[in-house]
């Protein structure tokens, strides 16, 4: 048990705590290391541990019935995951896996509860973290009419098609997301759905429009 105090101090959960409080909190925090690809949290299992990423990258994802993976969040050093189910007494809402070798700090649910009962500043920090999460979710929900996003991705593809000669337009998922005002993840999802509907085919870094009619229909362009 117990980890580096400096890394603990830099986490939003434990900001503004005195050295002595940090030391006492630190008794409950443990370090966990994982290799690339290791599953850290399984969707549907009871939520037991809150994790902070110290080094490396973690993805939070869900897998659909047909085995396709949808990434919801990328957790970089300093960020936490599994907060909501821990505090809601629930099951893990999504799975989490290491995208690289990772170093995590973890705190068990019962310990986090004990700590926040003892030190109200921790409880206040938790409220702040959760408020940020709610804000993120609200912006995701605004996006959630998925058909609308797919339609706009389809439109962008039609508008940025190269004619085979000269300088060809090239766009990243990030740029398309910014053009639409959506999250980058939604663009990736739209690609897959457009592919499934037979409108496009993706070959590495080329998006090939295989059926303009279908694509136009999805884009809401008639005639």
């Amino acid at each position: 048990m117990a980890v580096n105090l400096d890394s603990l101090k830099s986490l939003p959960y434990f900001s503004g705590l005195s050295e002595s409080v940090l030391l006492s909190v630190n008794q409950h925090v443990f370090e966990k290391k994982a290799e690339r690809g290791e599953i850290l949290v399984f969707e549907g299992e009871p939520a037991e541990t809150l994790y902070f990423v110290v080094a490396g990258v973690v993805k939070v994802f869900k897998t659909s019935a047909d085995g396709k993976e949808q990434i919801y969040r990328i957790i970089r050093p300093g960020d936490s995951f599994n907060d909501v189910p821990i505090l809601a007494d629930g099951v893990n809402l999504a799975s989490a896996a290491a995208m690289s070798a990772v170093v995590l700090n973890g705190i068990k649910k019962k310990d986090l509860e004990a700590v926040s009962r003892e030190y109200p500043q921790v409880a206040l920090n938790i409220i702040k973290v959760l408020s940020l999460r709610v804000e993120e979710l609200v912006s995701l929900v605004e996006d959630f009419s998925f058909r609308r996003v797919s339609g706009r991705v389809a439109k962008i593809l039609l508008e940025h098609t190269g004619n085979g000669g000269g300088e060809r337009p090239r766009l990243t998922q990030q740029e398309m997301a910014a053009m639409i005002g959506t999250a980058r993840e939604m663009v990736g999802r739209s690609f897959r759905s457009l592919e499934e509907e037979g409108a496009i085919r993706i070959e590495r870094n080329r998006i090939i429009i295989v059926n303009q009619e279908i694509l136009k229909k999805i884009a809401g362009i008639t005639g």
Binding site: V57, I71, I74, R76, M99, L157, H160, T161, G162, G164, R168, P169, R170, L171, T172, Q173, Q174, E175, R184, G188, R201, I202, R204, N205, R206, I207, I208, I209, V210, Q212
Partner: peptide
């Protein structure tokens, strides 16, 4: 490199781009 675009996704500073070329099947 299969153009998984994960590098673009994880970069916290928007410093990597994996652009797609958009073409019509001929």
């Amino acid at each position: 490199c299969g153009w998984c675009t994960m590098c673009e996704l994880v970069c916290p500073n928007g410093a990597i781009s994996c652009p797609f070329e958009i073409v019509v099947e001929t």
